[in-house]
Structures are given as structure tokens and as C-alpha cells.
Design a protein around this nucleic acid. Structure first.
Lengths: 191, 191
DNA sequence: CGCGACGTTGATTTGCCTCAACGATTGTGG
DNA sequence: CCACAATCGTTGAGGCAAATCAACGTCGCG
């Protein structure tokens, strides 16, 4: 269970057995059932989540009550309300399970202490956030300057394993277009 | 000159005089004149740039030859082709000076060595990339789910000091809309 | 001076949203 | 296990916001 996460981490840094054990001490397994929430708007956030199994979505609700999906997460992905977590402000996002999930929760307070004892973790998260930043820049390029049809195809390249696990409505929402438009795009693409 | 950068870094970590001197050793001052390039598409990238003075833009050119501005940078901002830098692939972006600039160049090879000697820098860049990631998520939310008029106003909140330094054409391009549309938005807002 | 970059306005087109309807599928409670 | 409700995918009609295309005045610069 926690080994999946350790393998993920060891792709970027090398941990000794002692360090692995110490890290295991600050992570806790959580089950989240379909339609229930890991984070709800307004709460304080102090954990980062790594998905071991299942599928979740992060969305916010605007002034008009419309939901907007910002991120999906499946196995081997990270999710939380990063803005709330790092700036110690109440969550703006809802993080809801689309399937029954198993996640590993990491308390940032414990993580901060760990950074001091084992700076290698600082390195790991530097690399992780750098990669996340780069991936988001690609998404900005895609969302601003490409047709919706191409953006739909790019979605599948980026999330090849999500297609059958979320509805088209979800994908349309993530792309910022209506479900009807997405349906017509799919028709025109012969899908 | 380099003190501006050290002050920037010391907002997140505390460096001793010795560490500051060591860091100064891996940064080099560069002048970039208006309309000249810090990075051009196709070249290999091995430096990160901190802007001491001036204004630059990062853009890419699509298959149809259209430019798309991804980022501006002014004093106290960082800029480079992060994807090319971190994945050791040729640059996709052009980084061009809009004004005559002074930047500080940090070689990532030297930086990697510094991370090992002084892990505090790993911490600094972890925090820097985390903040950049969070800021980009806000931009994604803005670009996908808000009207162009609101996005234009949000641009000024985010870049309050850029308004008089770049043309409306640049801003429109950054927002992914046409200059004509932006002009009409400005008219309707009474600007 | 003359050229090019920039900002602005108008006319037309177009892609997407909105609203509405309906069949298929899934889920749920009696 | 069936009946009914909710969700999902799909299609059509109509409208709107922004793109496109075109034109023109202003400004700064070589």
C-alpha cells in the first residue's frame, strides 16, 4: 500500500530503509467512498493526498452556483487544495471521490519537520512541484490557444487512463465547455 | 545588483554570509537589449533567469506561425523555458526583451551542485515552484471559467506594474483574445 | 518624410452557449 | 425483481459573444 508511494518517491531520490520507515510514520491511509468528500470548501486544509486506488475530482463552485472541475486524480496522482494548504486559508475547493478510493494522507506539519531531518524530501517535493508547474503551463497553452476539438484530444493524451472512469459531462466541465458541445465534437471526430 | 536577488531569497530561507558568497559565485549578470532574445526556439537551455531590471515576454509560435505569449516578466520575476530546462530538450519558447533588461543567469548544473552542498537552496526552490504552481492554477481557473472582461481586470490585479510597459496587443495575446476584442472590452469598461 | 506599429471602429461570419426535448442507461426503493 | 427516478448522451433551434476582415487615424522612429 505505502510501497506504491515509496516506489514513486524513489524514482526521484534514494531513501535508506531507516528513512523509508520514518516517512511511513507520517502517512496515514484513508478510505473515501464514492460521492463523499476529502475536502470541502471552507474547511482548513493540512494534508496532501496521494491516490493509491480510485478516482477523484477537485472543483470549485462560483458565485452563480456552477461547478468547475480543476483537476482529476487517479492512481499515482497527488491532490489537495494546494492554495489553502500552503497559505493556511480555508479551502476554496471540494475534493470528491468519483469512485471508492484509497488515499495516503500526509500532514504538512509532520512533513515540515521531516524536511529538516531529511532534506532529501525537500528535494523530492521540489522536483514534484516543478513537474506539476511545467504540466500546468502546457495546459495553459492548450486552453488558451487551441480549438476545443484539439483540446479534447489532448485531454486523452494527458489522461489516457481516465477516459472510461469519468463521464463526458466531467470532461466537458474540466475543459470549460458544455456537455452538448463536447458531444458534437465527439460526433464530428467520429467517436 | 545581486543583492536584490539575495533579498528575494532571504524572504524564504536564511543564508549565512558564506552561503551568500557561494551563491553569488554561480550567478552571472547579463544585459539583454530590447527586441533581442534570451532564449530562442530550438536551442538547448541550461539557465534560469531572474529579472533585475526591464521587461520580457515568453512566447511560442504555433504551426500556423501565430505567436502566443505565455508569460511576462519584470523586476523580481523568474523566467526561462522551464520545460526545456528541466527535461533537457530544445527550447520551444522564445524569450524576448520588451525593454532593455538586466537579468541574473543561474546555471542549473551549478545549481544542482549547490543543492548538495547547501540543501537550503533546495528548500527555496521548492517554495518558489510551489508558489508558481498555485499561481498557475488560479490562472487556469480564470482562463477557463471567467468572461474576457473579468479576465482583463484580473490581469491588472496580477500584474499591476505591467500595464504601461506592454502594449494592449501583448495583453490581448496573453489572454488568448484578439486585439480588437480587447479594445472593445476597454471601451465598454470606460477605459 | 514615410513607414510600420498601435489603437480603434464597423460589418460580417462563426463557433459555442442556451434552451428544449427525448431515448438509453444506471441506480434505488418498494 | 420490478418500477420509477435520476443521470447521461444526443440532437435540434435560436441567439450571442468573439473572431475575422477591412479600413483609418495617430504616434514614434529610422
Amino acid at each position: 500500500m505505502k510501497d506504491l508511494l515509496l516506489a514513486h518517491i524513489n524514482r526521484h531520490i534514494s531513501l535508506t530503509n531507516v528513512e523509508e520507515e520514518e516517512f511511513k510514520g507520517i502517512i496515514a491511509e484513508k478510505k473515501v467512498f464514492r460521492k463523499s468528500f476529502l475536502i470541502e470548501s471552507g474547511v482548513m486544509v493540512n494534508e496532501l493526498y496521494y491516490v493509491v486506488e480510485g478516482c477523484l475530482k477537485a472543483y470549485y463552485v462560483d458565485d452563480l452556483g456552477n461547478k468547475h472541475i480543476l483537476q482529476f486524480a487517479i492512481e499515482d496522482w497527488w491532490i489537495t487544495d494546494f492554495n489553502a494548504l500552503h497559505n493556511n486559508i480555508p479551502a476554496e475547493l471540494y475534493i470528491e471521490a468519483i469512485e471508492n478510493c484509497t488515499v495516503l494522507a500526509i500532514s504538512t506539519v509532520a512533513l515540515e519537520e521531516l524536511y529538516i531531518r531529511i532534506p532529501k524530501f525537500e528535494r523530492f517535493f521540489r522536483i514534484l512541484y516543478t513537474n506539476a508547474f511545467i504540466a500546468l503551463r502546457k495546459r495553459v497553452m492548450s486552453s488558451l490557444h487551441r480549438t476545443n476539438s484539439i483540446r479534447y484530444l489532448e485531454f486523452f493524451e494527458r489522461y489516457p487512463n481516465i477516459e472510461r472512469r469519468v463521464t463526458n459531462y466531467h470532461i466537458a466541465n474540466y475543459l470549460g465547455i458544455t456537455a452538448e458541445s463536447l458531444c458534437r465534437i465527439r460526433r464530428d471526430l467520429g467517436m
